[in-house]
Design a protein around this nucleic acid. Structure first.
Lengths: 148, 148
DNA sequence: TCTAATCCGTTAGCATGCTAACGATAAGAG
DNA sequence: CTCTTATCGTTAGCATGCTAACGGATTAGA
């Protein structure tokens, strides 16, 4: 993770970068990704893990619907599914009922891997929230969900 | 912004993707960036605007120090400063006291632009926080700062 | 039914954001 | 003063994440 070094300073117009919601969200997201990468194995990235978990929840999904469910646009879904395919964690077949669609599902290896990595996912979430007291964690998640 | 479409569903192991802090931070950050892009002009990105504001606060900064102050690693600082240079918003000169360093400062155009865009920055922050009541906004920012 | 609108996946292009490696320079230890 | 260590900026390589454009398939509506 990058160490930030400033004390907030500004030019007297009341715009302190360090207090802006966008900047704080960017930094919090960076920190969460950094913790994820420290704990997660198999070289999985946050979007890749999210996609695996969601495919497991669906059983079978089209590529675009998967993307919508994890907030990835079609172009990004494309890249993520390609990499998961290359790692043999998912399978892909044409939808016989709609020739535009590609249906995704976990491969046996993917199935096994997700099961094994869920505890790491929980550990990552806990560590990311660690600076807050349990009561604060609940408040924060509730407010964050309203803003997401 | 991407429309998310799922009702949370899971495989009974208590890991609901939609409740995870990392996933929520990623989505909130996406939403904030989307609002930024709608309101900001000149094709400026969030990191570019952050860099401009921070250079203004410093007056003159080395490239790496600028990066640390806005949480960008040196490789990313490199790209952002290149693009700001290409837009003639900043100036760059060698540090006579340390030949490793490059000193950055706003160009006259950059100076004028930052002054003009600060109100948009404030508007972006307000709109991003809009889903929360004023009291919740304060709580949220305080907790977010602890996690960032 | 035929046509217009929509949806699906793909690609190209660009901007973060990271790691790893590098040469050049500066600072510190002995 | 020399040798080691740290810092600065740069580059290459990879993974998100976006827009814009596209060709093909499906759906909706006139």
């Amino acid at each position: 993770m990058i160490e930030v070094d400033t004390k907030p300073a500004n030019a007297g117009d009341g715009y302190v970068l360090e207090d802006q919601i966008g900047h704080l969200l960017r930094r919090a997201h960076q920190r969460a990704s950094s913790i994820f990468q420290e704990i997660m194995t198999e070289g999985l990235t946050p979007p890749q893990f999210a996609a695996l978990v969601k495919i497991r929840d669906f059983g079978t999904v089209s590529q675009n619907r998967l993307g919508r469910s994890v907030a990835m646009d079609p172009a990004t879904s494309q890249g993520v599914t390609q990499r998961l395919l290359a790692k043999n964690l998912i399978q892909r077949r044409d939808d016989p009922n709609d020739r535009r669609r590609a249906l995704l599902s976990l491969s046996p290896e993917g199935e096994e891997l997700v099961k094994r990595l869920i505890p790491l996912g929980k550990q990552i979430s806990a560590e990311t929230l660690e600076p807050l007291k349990p009561e604060e964690q609940k408040q924060f998640l509730a407010l964050l969900a309203k803003i997401a």
